[in-house]
């Protein structure tokens, strides 16, 4: 599904080179729910942008759904992003003054889906995240949790191979954050959606079934999480 071989990414910072990724190799199977963890500067953002085809590696191989993407040009990468990747961001990144429905329709517009179909599919996606009654609302008329649900609906509307979430609960209060993690878990459990969560928060990471830890551009651990936290269960400190 995702196959990374010896990925490196080097940035030129003035005279010095920064190796943001330094030989990362791993495989993610279809239907996995996985967390990529690491402190800031560990290279997890760089890894995310490569997984999301927002950037290409300096060297190494990246095979996504059987397609080798490391040598694609910008237009081809844009198409891959539109078809295979659904992004969820910390700050939601919804278009202002644009209804929830139109926000969700955006990826379909770029994919060239016709108007009527676009409308139906966006409505279905919004229903799916529990916002069927908020389709005409603009982002500023929605709560943070609702905005993130709209963003998730937008990510899902093209039925992507990967749902790629970058600190998805980072801008939300803990209760709403739990709801969002619950939504991810149900997408994973009920539909077999591949979910990759990029986070620095170990608690968030423990909601997934596999945790890859990065440090200084290298993978330092890649372990199966046998007992993922079920979203909505009390946080450890609340147990005490």
């Amino acid at each position: 599904m995702i196959q990374m071989e010896n990925l490196t990414k080097v940035f030129q910072m003035g005279d010095s080179e920064v190796r943001a990724l330094d030989g990362a190799s791993f495989t993610i199977e279809k239907g996995e729910m996985i967390a990529i963890m690491g402190p800031s500067g560990s290279g997890k953002s760089t890894l995310m942008s490569i997984i999301g085809c927002l950037d290409v590696p300096s060297s190494g191989r990246y095979i996504l759904d059987g397609v080798s993407v490391e040598n694609l040009d910008e237009t081809q990468l844009a198409e891959i992003r539109g078809q295979k990747i659904g992004f969820v961001f910390q700050q939601f990144n919804l278009l202002a003054r644009t209804s929830a429905l139109e926000n969700v329709m955006l990826p379909l517009t770029y994919a060239g889906v016709s108007g009527r179909q676009r409308n139906d599919r966006a409505l279905k996606a919004l229903e799916h995240v529990g916002l069927a009654d908020r389709t005409r609302h603009a982002p500023n008329e929605l709560s943070g949790g609702q905005q993130q649900r709209v963003a998730i609906a937008r990510a899902l509307v093209n039925e992507p191979a990967i749902l790629l979430a970058d600190e998805p609960t980072g801008a939300l209060d803990s209760k709403t954050g739990v709801e969002i993690m619950d939504l991810f878990q149900s997408l994973h459990r009920d539909q077999g959606q591949t979910v990759i969560v990029v986070t620095h928060d170990a608690y968030v990471a423990r909601h997934t079934t596999r945790i890859i830890k990065l440090s200084d551009g290298k993978i330092v651990s890649d372990e199966v999480n046998h007992h993922p936290i079920k979203a909505g269960a009390p946080r450890p400190e609340e147990v005490i």
């Binding site: 999301g52 910008e74 844009a78 992003r81 539109g82 955006l106 770029y110």
Partner: peptide, 16 residues
């Protein structure tokens, strides 16, 4: 800029 980034993330090509 952020809007442009988002549009690109959801599949907008350079020409679009």
């Amino acid at each position: 800029t952020k809007e442009i980034g988002l549009r690109k993330a959801v599949g907008a090509t350079k020409n679009q």
